[in-house]
């Protein structure tokens, strides 16, 4: 909440993600969450922006006028756009070039109290699942530490979905280390990528219902989600975990977040497993 009140970047992106055989969707709303913080009602140019490793490629979607919404699905676009399972929808105030060296940062719709979001999620022929989405480009030098209490143990599959978007379009591999938070036991290691959505099967690691997995990346910040899908494919759950700084309010949250991360990285002996 406190962070929400601080001045942030005045632009935002909305993710359109794919995961396995699930299609992604995003419903963009050009009306602000509150009636006092944002007054610009000029039409915006909606773009789909995806990385090809060297550049951000842009695809003009349409002009959106104030008070309208627009639903996009991954099915609406060529598969090549989702080579990294991620594209971003951006409400640009102006026409964009077809290729960009960095994500655009023109001032566009944005609020802080609360944050202006879209609905994003996944769907199949039986069900859809949602979360309230927005993403500001993550820093190139970042890290991830998150605790994951979403694994379920009935007839379903459990996944970790890792979302990263940075201003630089490079695709870089990083390690994601998996530990048991209680025993500190090293469970496994997998790869995640910048400017991508990576889906990781969690059932392969044999966690039990009282285990709290902890996921660590020293090289990449990310937004981690728990995705559960029942075997009949008609029930899905999607929610992101909190960063460790969300365990506290007041005071200096940046400092305490750094403190929490450094304690866990040291205790888990992360450096031993990095290479």
């Amino acid at each position: 909440m406190i962070a929400m009140l601080q001045r942030k970047a005045e632009f935002v992106f909305f993710p359109l993600m794919k995961s396995m055989d699930l299609e992604g969707w995003v419903n963009i709303v050009y009306f602000p969450p509150n009636n006092w913080e944002y007054l610009d009602k000029k039409p915006k140019y909606l773009y789909l922006i995806y990385p090809n490793g060297a550049k951000w490629k842009t695809v003009f979607l349409e002009k959106i006028t104030f008070n309208k919404s627009r639903l996009f699905s991954t099915q609406d676009f060529k598969e090549i756009f989702f080579d990294k399972s991620l594209a971003l929808v951006y409400p640009s105030p102006k026409i964009l070039d077809s290729e960009l060296d960095f994500l655009p940062n023109f001032k566009t719709w944005k609020t802080n109290i609360p944050a202006w979001r879209a609905s994003s999620g996944f769907k199949n022929s039986h069900a859809q699942v949602s979360y309230q989405s927005d993403i500001e480009p993550l820093p190139e030098k970042g890290s991830l530490l998150t605790f994951h209490p979403f694994i379920q143990f009935s007839k379903l599959r459990n996944y970790l979905v890792v979302l990263n978007a940075q201003s630089n379009p490079r695709i870089v591999n990083h390690s994601l280390l998996i530990f048991n938070s209680k025993s500190k036991e090293f469970i496994g290691k997998t790869q995640i990528q910048t400017n991508s959505v990576t889906t990781i099967d969690l059932d392969q690691f044999g966690f039990e219902s009282t285990d709290l997995p902890v996921f660590v990346s020293k090289g990449m910040a990310a937004i981690p989600f728990g995705l559960g899908i029942n075997l009949d494919m008609n029930l899905m759950s999607l929610e992101h975990t909190h960063p460790p700084g969300s365990f506290v309010v007041r005071g200096d949250r940046n400092k305490i977040q750094k403190q929490i991360k450094s304690k866990w990285l040291e205790t888990l002996k992360v450096d031993l497993y990095e290479n």
């Binding site: 909190h242 365990f247 506290v248 309010v249 005071g251 200096d252 949250r253 400092k255 305490i256 403190q259």
Partner: peptide, 11 residues
């Protein structure tokens, strides 16, 4: 807690 923070559960 350090840094004059308070614990919160937003679980």
């Amino acid at each position: 807690l350090d840094f004059e923070s308070s614990l919160t559960d937003r679980g």
